[in-house]
Write a protein that binds this DNA or RNA. Structure first.
Length: 216
DNA sequence: GACCAGATTGTCT
DNA sequence: GACAATCTGGTCA
């Protein structure tokens, strides 16, 4: 990594709460290119967000809160900028950023990032060498960044785990259907956002799935 | 490359 | 008791 990049990373500050107080699909799109930062005892971890998914309160059966408020999904009802971490498949964690005003359960799932800083720490945490294996999936990203359930209900607008403005906004994004949802669970909704033609995404848009490209 | 099964446990019906 | 916003390593073409 260049000295220039290091300098840029040192000056990163969190996006304000207003950033998350917009329509959730807009937030999911705006997060592309932004930098996820975690300042740990072992150093700073940073990655450029390249893939997100939006989950909506209305008309989205795939949203955790689709069947009401529970102990688990309670953080989704919190104020915008709340971090929602949950366990999936008994062994993996996923990280969401809550959007919309408190009381409306909407969030953006962070699915993939391009590792920028703290690569060695990420390798240790992941037990993998290849950079493309570090953050190319929601559970991988969480593991690489050292995110745990202790971060659940945290505030992403106040470190040590935060999102900073984009250093390198994408020229073009792809909007397509979300991953891992069963039929009838909102799998038809176009709520997955990727940086177009980016090698760091979890998986490319499916050839048979609807997708559209949008210029910045 | 595509597809499949196994791992593993909290949450909800 | 079924299932889940996943990952990995295996098999097969």
């Amino acid at each position: 990594m260049s000295r220039n990049t290091n300098t840029q990373l040192a000056g990163l500050t969190p996006l304000p709460r207003d950033f998350y107080l917009r329509p959730t699909p807009e937030v999911a799109r705006a997060l592309l290119g932004c930098v996820l930062v975690h300042r740990t005892d072992e150093g700073t971890l940073a990655g450029r967000i390249v893939e997100t998914e939006a989950y909506l309160a209305e008309g989205d059966a795939g949203c955790h809160a689709a069947r009401g408020r529970t102990e688990r999904n309670d953080p989704m009802f919190g104020p915008p900028g709340t971090i929602y971490v949950y366990l999936i498949y008994g062994m993996h964690l996923c990280m969401n950023l809550v959007t919309a005003p408190a009381g409306i359960a909407e969030a953006v799932l962070l699915r993939a990032a391009e590792p920028l800083a703290g690569i060695e720490q990420m390798r240790r945490r992941r037990g993998r060498e290849r950079r493309e294996d570090l953050c190319s999936g929601p559970a991988k990203l969480v593991e690489a960044f050292g995110v745990s359930l202790e971060h659940n209900r945290g505030d992403v607008t106040r470190g040590p785990l935060f999102v900073a403005p984009a250093l390198d906004p994408p020229d073009e994004v792809v909007v397509t259907t979300r991953i891992g949802l069963g039929a009838g669970c909102g799998d038809e909704l176009m709520l997955r956002y990727l940086v177009a033609d980016d090698p760091w995404v979890s998986r490319p848009p499916r050839a048979d799935a609807p997708a559209r490209r949008e210029k910045r």
